[in-house]
Measured scan of single mutants.
Amino acid sequence: VGDQVLEIVPSNEEQIKNLLQLEAQEHLQLDFWKSPTTPGETAHVRVPFVNVQAVKVFLESQGIAYSIMIED
């Protein structure tokens, strides 16, 4: 199991704000291929294997929908 690319769908401005804060966490080494800008629009982010669980827990705790787009 390696890195994953998640497709994330924020449903409101609050969730977009939370994702932008997540993007700013440099220690997570997230690679946003497509940043969140509009509710209902997908964002794509590559998550290093060591941080996959932490990111998924965060998304679930914020009620942000996501799916695994690419499993490496």
Rank of each mutant, 00 (worst) to 15 (best):
I70M: 09
G63H: 06
P10H: 01
Q4M: 14
E14C: 07
D72A: 12
T38L: 10
T42D: 02
R46C: 12
Q29A: 09
Y66G: 01
A24P: 03
L59F: 03
K56Q: 06
D31M: 12
I68L: 09
Q15V: 02
P36E: 03
V5P: 01
V9K: 07
Q21N: 11
V55L: 10
S11M: 14
K56G: 03
Q53K: 10
Q29Y: 09
Y66A: 01
V52E: 03
V5L: 09
P48V: 03
T38R: 07
V9R: 12
G40Y: 07
K56F: 07
K34T: 11
P10G: 03
W33K: 10
N12Q: 02
E71P: 09
L22M: 05
Q4T: 14
I68C: 05
A24M: 10
I8A: 02
A24H: 09
Q15Y: 01
L59A: 00
A43K: 02
E7R: 14
F49H: 13
E14D: 09
L22A: 04
L22F: 08
S67A: 07
Q21A: 13
F49R: 07
T42W: 04
V45H: 00
F32D: 02
H44W: 15
D72V: 14
K56N: 02
E60H: 06
E71A: 11
I68V: 12
N12T: 14
S35V: 09
F49M: 13
L28C: 08
Q29G: 13
A54G: 04
A65S: 09
Q25S: 10
T37V: 07
A54N: 05
Q29I: 05
P39V: 11
V45C: 06
L28S: 03
S11K: 11
S67D: 05
H44V: 15
N12L: 02
V45K: 00
L30F: 04
E60T: 06
F58R: 02
D3E: 09
M69N: 04
G40S: 04
V1A: 13
P10K: 01
Q62I: 10
V52S: 05
E23Y: 13
S35Q: 14
M69P: 04
E7Y: 10
V1Y: 13
F49P: 04
I16R: 04
H27V: 09
E23K: 15
V5G: 03
V45D: 00
A54V: 12
L59S: 00
T37A: 06
Q62V: 12
G2A: 07
S35W: 12
G2S: 08
P36N: 02
T37S: 12
I16C: 09
V5N: 07
I16K: 02
E13K: 08
E13R: 07
F58S: 02
V9H: 09
R46H: 13
D3Q: 08
T42P: 15
S61N: 11
V5M: 11
P39T: 04
S61I: 06
I8S: 00
L28H: 03
Q15I: 02
Q29T: 06
S67C: 12
T38S: 08
L20A: 07
Y66W: 07
K56D: 01
E7A: 14
V57Y: 12
V47L: 03
I16T: 04
T42N: 05
T38C: 08
V52P: 00
G63Y: 04
S61M: 11
K56E: 04
Q4H: 08
N18T: 15
T37Q: 07
Q4F: 14
R46Y: 11
L20W: 09
A24C: 08
I70R: 05
N51D: 05
N12Y: 02
Q4E: 08
D72L: 13
S67T: 13
Q53E: 14
M69Q: 06
I70C: 15
V55E: 00
I68E: 06
Q21H: 12
E13L: 12
E26C: 14
W33Y: 14
K17C: 09
Y66E: 00
V45N: 01
E23N: 10
P48M: 04
T42H: 09
P48W: 03
S35Y: 14
L59D: 00
V1E: 13
V9F: 13
V50D: 12
L22R: 02
D72E: 14
A24S: 09
Q53P: 10
E14Y: 07
E13N: 10
Q15C: 02
G63K: 06
I68M: 06
D3W: 14
N51G: 04
I68A: 05
N18S: 14
L22T: 02
P10F: 13
E60R: 04
E14I: 08
Y66T: 01
L20K: 12
Q62W: 14
L6E: 00
P10Y: 04
L30A: 03
T42V: 14
N51E: 07
G63A: 04
K56A: 06
K34M: 05
D31E: 15
S35F: 13
K34H: 09
Q62L: 12
L30N: 01
H27T: 06
L28P: 04
S11R: 11
A65M: 11
I16V: 10
K17M: 09
F49K: 12
F58W: 14
T37W: 09
S11G: 07
V57T: 13
K34Y: 06
L30D: 01
G2C: 15
